[in-house]
Design a protein around this nucleic acid. Structure first.
Lengths: 131, 131
DNA sequence: GTCTTAATCAACCAAACGGTTGATCAACCG
DNA sequence: CGGTTGATCAACCGTTTGGTTGATTAAGAC
């Protein structure tokens, strides 16, 4: 996924109205009027929100006479979680490695009692040093 | 997760500079100067970006003399994927249910040959009707 | 003390965002 | 045909965003 697409996708989800639309669309396709119904804004504003979602690749639109049903693209959502998880898992695994490593050094600290602050403070400090 | 927090979190990720910072931080904590290094913008601008990430709850900051190391909060990232997946999975499961349902109705269509367009068009149309 | 380093605060600016009103297009209905 | 419905286009407006420059705070280093 390119930077620009990620920009637009995350930006699209950064608005509560558009997130509510995504929530609604997860239960099935909907028209502009149906999507507008829960909100106290003009239909033009709703139309713009949908265009933002569409330009972000999160939804697609078809034609049904004068209606323009909106369809949520689950694959696009999956690409977003994939981006986040990539770094979340990296950070988590690094954290787990440190926990193991500190489990070992805790024993070492017990055998070197010259430390004046031998509790969890120690753990936090070691984690910072290891960046 | 509250609406406001989601607003700020998704907004924070909607900028390529801040996403690059998240990527960098997934490999370990970093200072403002370290985070600024890859970018051709002033350190003040970088500082603002970090504040955006911090206010969004995606990173935390500690003190080390005059340095202010930034730490990525993996749990916050997890809350974001949880929000997305909630609706992604709903949409996907609905899609799967339709596929099963259409497997059955395809047989029915074969026994009612008055249909003038009995191929995949049929599938798309039935999926739309079922919203 | 003075000097350097790390980072922030403050004021400003152009561009983008979310919203409005008013006009227009496109397809069905009678 | 004219009228209604669904939706968009166009112009405008206040606020926010991402960036700048310049001044300031805070902690070491000499």
């Amino acid at each position: 996924m390119e930077q620009d697409a990620l920009d637009r996708a995350f930006m699209a989800l950064a608005d509560p109205v558009r997130r509510a639309m995504v929530a609604r669309l997860s239960r099935g396709d909907a028209t502009v009027n149906e999507l507008a119904e829960p909100f106290a804004i003009t239909k033009q504003a709703v139309s713009k929100h949908i265009q933002v979602l569409e330009h972000a690749g999160l939804v697609t639109r078809s034609r049904d006479a004068q209606r323009r049903p909106v369809h949520l693209d689950a694959a696009a959502l999956e690409r977003l979680t994939a981006w986040i998880d990539q770094y979340r898992l990296l950070a988590e695994s690094r954290f787990r490695q440190l926990d193991e490593l500190l489990g070992a050094s805790q024993n070492a600290a017990a055998s070197h009692p010259e430390q004046e602050n031998p509790e969890q403070e120690n753990t936090a400090k070691k984690k910072e040093e290891l960046r």
